[in-house]
């Protein structure tokens, strides 16, 4: 007996249209050559052929690069705050990769444990994720070193795998199973379909050739934390832009700014980066004035400090920080060449 379903590739548009009646459906989209997310336009499924991963990660649909938090006004009686309407709009992200779906699993606790962040949680709780198995990982991907199979995911609601002229669909969460229960184009998969998907998953895993040695990585980083000379060398070609952090699916730092026009204002939050020399300058000073301290922070936060608090490495090996970096700074080389051997 099989547990999964399938749909003809040519019927994908119909399925997306059906989902569009209930959700804002987001799909991979190209704009001026840039792979990003856009609202499904009802017809174009060409991404099936070109899509590998987006430059802007799906986190942008939970923690947008900029977001209005509230508006305020001042009069004789003091400040009046006007909160935005409750965000109830339902979205469905079609095509998220296993790395980026894992990233959301890593990031979500930050926004719900110590403090419940209504902005993030409203979006997260109103979103369904439909994963798409990677069959063409990039040469910068190293997800397998972080325990991720590029073609499998438990962090999504539905998982879709390209098996030729059909997609195999696996229900992962209850919500995901419900989502396809009523879909008319969907059929029961055969054992042969499932076998094919299994083959593809194994092949995809093998295609990821970049590796990071994560054994004892916390300890290794801790041992060489004070090695200033080492970190200076590691950081010397970095230009302290925000690309590797802002585009990282597991980076979640944000900055808060008010725009004040006469007596009315708006409070915004927007992405921030520990690579910026001005980071945390507003409340205090940036304790990491030298570039090497900032670069060290980025590496150690992901591979040492975050695991200390949450027991999981805050990197999913998506490789964006390598692909997009203007100087080709490569975190895998840094991690594989730490001076400390533990």
């Amino acid at each position: 007996m099989t547990t999964s379903q399938k749909i003809k590739k040519t019927d994908l548009g119909k399925l997306l249209n059906q989902w569009s009646q209930e959700f804002t459906v987001l799909v991979p989209w190209r704009e001026n050559g840039l792979a990003t997310w856009a609202k499904w336009n009802g017809t174009d499924t060409s991404f099936i052929d070109w899509y590998r991963n987006t430059v802007v990660p799906a986190k942008a649909h939970f923690l947008p690069s900029q977001e209005e938090m509230f508006r305020f006004q001042k009069d004789e009686k003091g400040y009046h705050i006007e909160l935005p309407d409750a965000d109830e709009h339902k979205q469905l992200i079609f095509g998220i990769r296993p790395c980026d779906a894992r990233a959301l699993t890593i990031v979500s606790p930050i926004f719900e444990e110590l403090y419940e962040d209504p902005y993030y949680l409203a979006k997260r709780n109103n979103t369904l994720l439909v994963g798409l198995a990677c069959t063409r990982p990039c040469d910068s991907c190293f997800c397998t070193s972080l325990g991720i199979n590029p073609a499998e995911s438990i962090d999504v609601d539905l998982m879709v795998t390209d098996i030729g002229d059909q997609f195999l669909i696996e229900g992962i969460s209850e919500a995901g199973k419900e989502l396809i229960a009523g879909a008319s184009e969907v059929k029961e998969a055969t054992e042969a379909d499932e076998a094919k998907a299994k083959e593809i998953k194994e092949a995809s895993y093998q295609k990821v050739t970049r590796k990071v040695d994560t054994d004892n990585i916390k300890e290794k980083l801790s041992v060489c934390f004070e090695d200033e000379e080492h970190w200076e060398k590691v950081a010397d070609n970095c230009i302290s832009c925000g690309i590797c952090t802002l585009l990282c699916p597991t980076c979640f730092c944000f900055d808060i700014n008010d725009e004040l026009v006469k007596k009315q204002g708006t409070r915004f939050r927007s992405w921030d980066s520990c690579a910026f020399s001005i980071y945390t300058k507003m409340p205090m000073e940036n304790p990491r004035e030298e570039k090497w301290r900032r670069v060290r922070q980025k590496v150690c936060h992901k591979f040492e400090f975050h695991p200390m608090s949450y027991d999981i490495i805050a990197c999913v090996g998506c490789g964006r920080c390598i692909r997009q970096c203007p100087v080709n700074w490569d975190i895998t080389q840094v991690l594989n060449n730490l001076p400390a051997k533990v």
Binding site: N32, C241, G242, I243, S273, F276, P326
Partner: peptide
């Protein structure tokens, strides 16, 4: 349309040798 995509990573500024200000005007509050 083009600038709607900008994420303010400041890579354009930081790779630029002509942008040598210690503190950029965007960082003034």
């Amino acid at each position: 349309n083009e600038f709607s995509r900008c994420i303010r990573c400041y890579a354009c500024r930081n790779v630029c040798p002509a942008c040598f200000c210690k503190r950029c005007f965007v960082e003034e509050s």
